[in-house]
């Protein structure tokens, strides 16, 4: 117990961040599983209902239960974030490992390309993709996923470049270990701490990006809902029903805060 307190004091970001994430996940999962309301079911009598035991967070402009919608929206947002980061990490590792380990011309070309992609503000690139592919959950995932590859590739590449110069890698090479074995058995486990913290920060960015896109109306399309969409709907009623916008916005902010604290904490540990 004392030990735990000590650890928390030493790295409060990590534990507070993890706690926020766990609580938010619990709220969202509870809502998805236990909420008796269909998130899309409208109820004219419950328009903008105040929070009550029946509707813990009240209702929106169509009388839909806000908690049920928030859970489903949050789940969608998180699902998109996970899928996006997954694409980014997997391709990032493959590209980063190859370029960082081998270097050379291919590395130069890919990194030049990487720089060009990273030179774009991410939201702008997302807009390009969306205007090409069209909007919708699946297309958002693909767009954001591709967008996330360069930043992960860059991190993995620099770690591989650093590690491939270390003595234990040299010594493995001297024993006759093959390149693939060195890359994935010897080096990869060593970069996991760094990868972990950047993955968590990636979640943070993915949640933000998805929410921004859906807020602008070019992300998730109705009937599915996401937190960004809900916030843009809520903005219309900001004057009469500010709680709608505030609850939705705070949910997004807390998820982002949780991931960014956790990411910072992990970085400190790495």
């Amino acid at each position: 117990m004392k030990n735990l307190m000590f650890r928390i004091r030493k790295n409060p970001e990590m534990y507070i961040g993890a706690a926020i994430i766990v609580v938010m996940l619990a709220i969202i999962i509870c809502g998805v599983i236990f909420s008796p309301y269909d998130p899309d079911a409208m109820d004219a009598s419950a328009k903008f209902a105040d929070p009550s035991p029946a509707h813990p967070m009240g209702c929106d402009n169509f009388g839909r239960d806000l908690y049920a919608r928030l859970s489903i929206g949050g789940a969608t947002t998180l699902f998109i974030a996970v899928a996006t980061v997954f694409i980014g990490v997997i391709f990032g590792i493959i590209i980063g490992a190859l370029t960082g380990y081998y270097g050379g011309v291919v590395d130069e070309i890919l990194m030049r390309f990487n720089d060009a992609v990273l030179a774009f503000p991410s939201i702008l690139l997302a807009l390009v993709f969306i205007s090409l592919f069209g909007s919708g959950t699946f297309k958002v995932i693909i767009s954001l996923g591709i967008l996330f590859i360069p930043s992960f590739a860059r991190i993995v590449r620099s770690e591989f470049m650093r590690c491939s110069k270390l003595d234990y890698v040299r010594s493995a090479r001297l024993m006759g270990a093959g390149d693939l074995r060195i890359m994935f058995v010897h080096i990869l486990p060593n970069i996991i701490p760094v990868l972990l913290s950047s993955t968590v920060i990636g979640f943070n960015n993915a949640v933000l990006a998805e929410a921004s896109m859906s807020f602008l109306g070019i992300g998730v399309q109705p009937p599915s809902s996401s937190l960004g969409r809900m916030l843009s709907e809520a903005q219309a009623f900001l004057f009469s029903e500010p709680s709608y916008a505030i609850i939705t916005g705070v949910t997004i902010a807390l998820i982002v805060l949780g991931f960014s604290l956790l990411g910072d904490g992990l970085k400190k540990n790495a």
Binding site: L166, D167, Y168, R170, S171, L174, P189, N190, I192
Partner: peptide
């Protein structure tokens, strides 16, 4: 057969994750 090497920094020459 191929010689082996002992490196200067005993902290860098052993893979820390194994």
């Amino acid at each position: 057969k191929m010689p082996q090497m002992i490196f200067q920094d005993p902290y860098g020459s052993l893979n820390p994750t194994k």
